[in-house]
Simulated scan of single mutants.
Amino acid sequence: MNEELDDGRPVVALTGATGFIGAALSEHLMQAGYRVRALYRPRRGRVMPCADGLKWIAGDLDDPEALAELMRGAETLIHCAGSVRGANRADFDRVNEQGVINAVEAALREPACRRFLLISSLAAREPELSDYAGSKRRGERALAARAGRLSWAAIRPPAVYGPGDREMLPLFQGMARGVAAIPGSGSGRFSLIHVADLASAVITWLGAGTESGAIYELDDGHERGYDWDTVLGTAAQVLRDGAPIRRLKIPVAILRTVAGVNRLGARLFGYAPMLTPGKVREITHTDWVSDSTAFVQATGWRPVVSFRDGLAQTLGKTPALTGLPE
């Protein structure tokens, strides 16, 4: 794809580099002075963007040769690849557990590799809620069991938003139009983090000598997370010049009905739905508040992007935020 020169910069291998979080990580890693070797799935007509210090490796997590090429000369593997869609446990475990195992084995075969960072999910804290959540916890356990000589850590971000995100963007766009679709009672609390802050946390971890085997939660520093009143109040000021935003509550019974139809359709037609019964349990769970205190103490990292600023930037109201110190 693009030429790669050994210019003395440390090399980081990255999976999931074409996704929302992975793309931000790749950009921030290069800005921070790392060379990146990034895995991508080739397909007809796909042309990967070129950048100084970026080397694309064609393949996937089931391809030992591609993983070996990905790891060549890399000191660290950041495993960001993951599946958020699936019809059953096997669909999620294939990527979120077995993919971790494959990545760890590839890292162990590369003599230069010393560290492994897993980008997990806050959902792993509640593995009983869904196949997705369970698969993320099993991925963490697989890493812990197989890491061997690697110094490793896992990061559990909460809901991540920012430019390029397709999951939360419709919600924010609805708010800009004056309507917020809220699943269930809307009584829960939750944490958020802007993708630039997540990327800066990864950069900080790379430069810190943290204890191996740690699992860290992250958040944007907003104490006790958010409730919907706070989010909608901020969104009204940022997106609507103070005009109110109407709540459109979607009853759990309706969500479960749609999820059941999706599950049946997945069995009949073989597609991977987003809204499943497990996902309904996830999005109506009342406590998704995370606490980054342990990570801050271990690394010195601090989030810098407030929800107000991050929301404005995500909807194109302000210039892009880096999440990195000046």
Score class of each variant (00 low, 15 high):
N2G: 14
R9A: 15
P10Q: 11
L14P: 12
A17I: 13
T18P: 01
T18H: 00
L25T: 11
S26Y: 00
H28D: 15
H28C: 11
A32L: 12
R43H: 14
R46E: 12
M48C: 13
M48V: 15
M48Q: 15
A51M: 04
P64T: 13
P64L: 10
E65H: 09
A68E: 12
E75M: 09
T76W: 09
I78Y: 02
A81L: 06
A81C: 01
S83T: 08
A87I: 05
A87P: 04
D93S: 12
R94V: 03
V95F: 00
V95W: 02
V95L: 03
G99T: 10
I101A: 07
I101Q: 05
A103D: 10
E105W: 01
A107V: 11
R109C: 10
C113K: 00
C113H: 04
R115A: 12
L122W: 02
P127S: 05
E128V: 10
E128R: 13
S130I: 06
D131V: 01
A133T: 08
G134F: 03
S135T: 11
R137G: 05
R138H: 06
A144C: 02
A144T: 06
R146C: 14
R146G: 10
S151F: 00
W152L: 09
W152T: 13
P157C: 13
Y161G: 06
L169V: 07
Q173L: 13
M175Q: 01
I182Y: 05
G186S: 09
R189Q: 14
H194Q: 08
D197L: 08
D197T: 10
Y216C: 06
L218G: 09
L218S: 10
R224G: 05
G225I: 07
T230E: 15
G233M: 05
T234P: 00
R240M: 05
D241L: 02
G242C: 10
I245T: 11
R246D: 13
K249A: 15
A266R: 03
R267V: 06
Y271L: 04
A272C: 00
G278K: 03
V280G: 06
T286F: 00
D291T: 02
T299F: 07
W301F: 14
W301K: 02
P303Q: 06
F307R: 03
G310H: 08
K317E: 12
L324G: 09
